[in-house]
Amino acid sequence: MLELRLVQGSLLKKVLEAIKELVTDANFDCSATGFSLQAMDSSHVALVALLLRSEGFEHYRCDRNLSMGMNLNNVSKMLRCAGNDDIITLKADDGSDTVTFMFESPNQDKIADFEMKLMDIDSEHLGIPEAEYHAIVKMPSAEFARICKDLSSIGDTVVISVTKEGVKFSTRGDIGNANIVCRQNTTVDKPEEATIIEMQEPVSLTFALRYMNSFTKATPLSNTVTISLSSELPVVVEYKVADMGYIRFYLAPKIED
């Protein structure tokens, strides 16, 4: 028996919008720790890791570990039927091949349930080792989204370089090239507007902008984004999901032959 009640149902709606472009089908795993997902995109270049901790749910019942295969486009179709203020409850019986999404309006005058068929998915789970990152950049998520969008109108790849001067996003294409430098800036009115750069050593890596743009679909989840870089390692682009968890996107770098 599985029953997860999320008062801030809009978080789940935003999570689905954030990942459905990157991944088509995925297994959602439920355990005592929380509700999680790990899935690679079809070309095995990018990975999304989601964790919503059990403490973040108003009610969290998961009698045994359960893996539920879902088509994310179909989940998104279901969740789009929930109002932004609705409370969302996920329910599944042991051994059932369906999951039920229950939507309750805030004043309880409308209750809907949508039952969705589950599917068998052969999932490939990657072991992601703990890593020490050479540079960690925390910046406003809207700013990062704007940079990725702007650069993708010029080129296909972005070089992200962190030095003590700041973080530089560069691209080049047929029509020309572009460089955007963001300096550390902590003298802002609100903490979420700050750009904070923690650098152990300079790092410069190249990534496909198409994937970066896909990650920025998570922007509505959080005012800030954290970008962790190490030479010779995939970048981690992390968005917090309120105080209950995170979405982390991993992207393998392009490396000079």
Binding site: M40, S43, H44, V45, A46, L47, E124, H125, L126, G127, I128, P129, T157, T206, A208, E232, L233, P234, Y250, A252, P253, K254, I255, E256, D257
Partner: peptide, 14 residues
């Protein structure tokens, strides 16, 4: 030119 690496070059299937 640059080669797009796969995640499996860095992380192993578990």
């Amino acid at each position: 030119s640059e080669t797009q690496h796969l995640l499996t070059n860095f992380f192993h299937l578990s």
